[in-house]
Write a protein that binds this DNA or RNA. Structure first.
Lengths: 339, 339
DNA sequence: GATGGCTATGGAAACGATTCCATGACGGAA
DNA sequence: TTCCGTCATGGAATCGTTTCCATAGCCATC
């Protein structure tokens, strides 16, 4: 480990339990006990040890601890696209709970690629105590395989036998469709997201069923990507569909489509009503402000981490599913059909 | 370490170099060499070892490696507020370069609190090879102290003797003030951000000097927080300042103020021109779309990580400063003063 | 045909913490 | 007084990898 010739690495060497042991005249094992199992050593020794530790500015070396215990004190969070504003709140919620439990969060981004997701998950898995898979593009079997190796919680996508946290789209969607129906819309469209996304399928099926229940026709329109560009690109297809309202896969797509509408002189909501999903940052900024089906991503992040920590602690492999309700947020992008 | 009574932990035990050594009939040290120092063992042995490793699905245990080497293969990224959309791109850029170098990123959020930032940085520091401090609220001396312990790069804030990456606000700001001046604005205001923020001071000083150079008067208005709420809350103070244009500390504040203006019937840009900073996601969504001084946060993230990795590799402690140019993005929120 | 240098590999000591097992002291019960 | 249980602590093995040092074989050189 000699630093041969290299410019000397910076910083003083951090103190170890051996340093504390030497100073206080006890055995390293006693130091370890004093610091981690209060009451396991005599009060006076513990006192001396704690003081010495504070003096030296001792901090447990997580790597050294991880070796014998197998616990790294970190969780991995793998999302499909870190750039997507939806994940802001999720990340924040996750971070909050993790911090509360003295756990670090490692992030990674799979760039919407299943293959990259799998390899990243595998690499990540060895360095963490558990994995959070958000909006996974993997197949059920692949996820189950990962879950067999280490605790894993699927977010935004239920997987049989694997614990998961996901929004329940029905409540919000019912509100949305009731509103559209009440306003007189009869021909609507669903602007789809990525095919590999479970959530996309879920939204389409739910929207479809609810629309049919209400005697509305609903068309499915493909989009090139779950981004603003994807929404913009779909403009022509939406126009061709001859509908009075569009439910978009998410707010990003909806905002992209909204921009294209304005650009082409299609008035929203007079000529076309628009509803998004997720209530991301910025959804209330657009003109008109975007109506959307909201789910509390912050909550999802918190619940998911809590669940994962629980699974880690008691080796729980139960595949319990947790569903958080959604709600419709009514803004200016929806109105009665104009003609 | 026995799992006494606990529901058996999941998963098969991962393979180690000992397993590979046993299978191939060599010494573990040879396995280590074969895998990490190509050419250091005979081609045939290396071949056999690699095959066995692949068979067993061997992955290096990063904790075990970290112990003797002191290198964890992770970088810490500490921001003041993960919720701020500015950091999206920064995070993404950082993540990209980190991945390229097989390095993981650990995130943490200091919630705009200097004390929390310091303690988080210290805790983080022991688990990572280097630290990225974004928009730090710490004092120079504290940052220098942290930098003495382990490689550190300050982002969005230069610190004497510490390597840093920050935007150069002048170019973008010059464009902005030239535009305002050309349109006939003579009384403008700067809606400030957090006092502890170096960037806030920088923006104010630069705006002030440039305004004075052009014979414009400029007032400084305090805000309660660098968020949309902060901007909304500042509405009354802005009105009281009797100006025709406002430069806000950042887009968030600007958007908040914009919302308040619309709500109170103040027409933007006719009654008041508005300019933000950062060009965050959503800045182009508002009505009117927000003019802003943009800096490439993605680039900043990439550069910062690259710099940090460099510093780690060659123990470089040089406090080089890197400044990335900004540019003005002209949108609809600026016009000639209306009365 | 010794000698020296090089290459390929084995052996063992670290790294820092945890944890099982052992031991000595002490106190109370018989 | 003896014995046993308990408590506080020491000692040592262990986790998986890296790396320094040692050694055996080999080839080339003098």
């Amino acid at each position: 480990m000699g630093d041969k010739g290299r410019p000397a690495p910076k910083g003083r060497v951090p103190a170890t339990i051996y340093d504390i042991a030497r100073i206080t005249g006890v055995n390293p094992s006693t130091v370890s006990r004093a610091l981690n199992q209060p009451g396991r050593v005599s009060a006076s020794t513990e006192q001396r040890i704690r003081e010495a530790a504070a003096d030296l500015g001792y901090r447990t070396n997580p790597m050294a601890r991880a070796l014998p215990t197998g616990k790294t004190g970190t969780l991995g969070l793998l999302v499909s696209d870190l750039t997507n504003p939806v994940y802001f709140d999720l990340v924040r919620g996750a971070e909050r709970v993790a911090r509360e439990h003295d756990t670090m969060l490692v992030f990674a981004d799979s760039q919407e690629s299943a293959e990259l997701e799998r390899s990243t998950a595998e690499r990540l898995q060895i360095a963490v105590d558990g994995l959070l898979l958000v909006a996974s593009r993997l197949e059920d079997a692949q996820i189950q395989e990962l879950a067999a190796a280490k605790p894993l919680v699927a977010v935004n996508r239920p997987v049989p036998g694997v614990p998961s946290v996901a929004p329940d789209v029905r409540p919000g969607m019912i509100e949305a469709l009731d509103l559209l129906h009440g306003l007189g819309h009869r021909r609507i469209a669903y602007l789809a997201g990525p095919e590999a996304s479970w959530m996309n399928g879920m939204r389409w099926v739910t929207a479809h069923d609810l629309a049919v229940d209400r005697g509305m026709s609903i068309a499915e329109i493909q989009s090139s990507a779950p981004t603003r560009e994807g929404g913009t690109d779909a403009f022509a297809a939406v126009m061709a569909a001859d509908v009075t309202a569009v439910l978009a896969y998410n707010d990003l797509v909806a905002l992209g489509l909204l921009g294209a509408c304005l650009e082409h002189g299609v008035a929203v909501p007079r000529d076309l009503s628009l509803i998004g999903f997720d209530d991301i940052f910025g959804a209330d900024l657009s003109a008109p402000a975007l109506s959307t089906v909201r789910c509390s991503w912050g909550d999802m992040g918190e619940r998911a981490v809590a669940k994962l920590l629980g699974a880690i602690q008691d080796g729980d492999a139960s595949g319990a599913e947790l569903n958080l309700p959604t709600e419709f947020v009514s803004r200016a992008s929806v109105a009665a059909p104009g003609r």
